[in-house]
């Protein structure tokens, strides 16, 4: 079984992230990048499925040169090979263009199952998995908290506030997974050493026959028009109990509409 995991290299969510003043795109230079935490769950799920049967896991990413770090981390966790789509024209692409490029790359790969994280930790839109499935003409099963493969069918469980859904689809399919699905493994030292020898291919838009005018900032249907720094955290409200502490607490919670 061939599994392709789509992963994204994002600015570290725990660092001070910002935008580039020149074109209002995410600043990827000033902050350390890493494999999007939400994609680690997809990599882990792919590895579990592959290990349970006879599977091969390919990691696919799109992004500038440092994005190869996201592939390397996945390979260190145990994925078998990587594909990196890198092209200056991609800069500033929105979700629609991202799905276009990833779909073009997937058409050149063999896959039975495409796994994605539920969203990236920088854009946090969560749209690419469904768009990708649409472009590939295969089913999309999103926000899975459990995935099982039975022959040529995939079954996922989705948990919502009001219902637990079981969704079944024929393979190939695109499945996005949540952070509830598993506990991603750490790489091991052996994994780090093994990853150095695993194959990583780099493709350009020309390799994929994607017209550069369809991607990038100019083609994006969305734009960041302005942004401002998060306001500094203000100090909280301190309540001293002088007999009426309980009342004050309830008043505070009521004012915040918590009760």
């Amino acid at each position: 079984m061939n599994i392709v995991v789509c992963v994204k290299h994002v600015p570290d969510a725990t660092a001070n992230r910002t935008f580039r003043a020149s074109d209002n795109t995410v600043d990827r230079a000033g902050v350390d990048g890493l494999l999007s935490e939400l994609d680690e769950y997809a990599v882990e799920e792919a590895l579990k499925i592959a290990e349970a049967g006879d599977g091969e896991v390919t990691v696919l990413t799109m992004g500038p040169e440092p994005a190869t770090d996201a592939i390397r981390k996945s390979l260190q966790m145990g994925a078998h090979k990587g594909v990196h789509v890198s092209d200056d024209a991609i800069h500033g692409s929105d979700a629609i263009a991202t799905s276009l490029v990833l779909a073009a790359a997937l058409k050149r790969l063999e896959y039975d199952l495409v796994l994605c994280g539920m969203a990236s930790t920088d854009g946090v839109m969560g749209l690419v998995p469904a768009m990708l499935a649409e472009r590939l003409g295969i089913p999309a099963l999103t926000y899975a908290v459990e995935v099982s493969i039975d022959g040529d069918r995939v079954t996922v469980r989705r948990d919502s506030d009001t219902a637990v859904e079981t969704v079944v689809a024929p393979l190939p399919a695109v499945v996005s997974v949540t952070d509830q699905i598993n506990e991603p493994r750490y790489p091991s030292f052996k994994g780090i050493m093994a990853a150095k020898k695993k194959p990583v291919e780099t493709w350009t838009l020309a390799d994929l026959d994607v017209d550069a005018s369809q991607v990038g900032l100019d083609a994006a249907g969305t734009a960041v028009t302005s942004y401002q720094a998060r306001p500094p955290r203000s100090s909280g409200t301190v309540i001293s109990d002088e007999g009426d502490g309980g009342v004050q607490l309830v008043d505070f919670l009521a004012a915040q509409k918590f009760v």
């Binding site: 260190q76 750490y186 030292f189 780090i192």
Partner: peptide, 14 residues
């Protein structure tokens, strides 16, 4: 070495 940097990054994560 490169692997030593990756190793120390792993250690810091753990």
């Amino acid at each position: 070495s490169d692997e030593a940097y990756d190793l120390l990054a792993l250690v810091r994560d753990i």
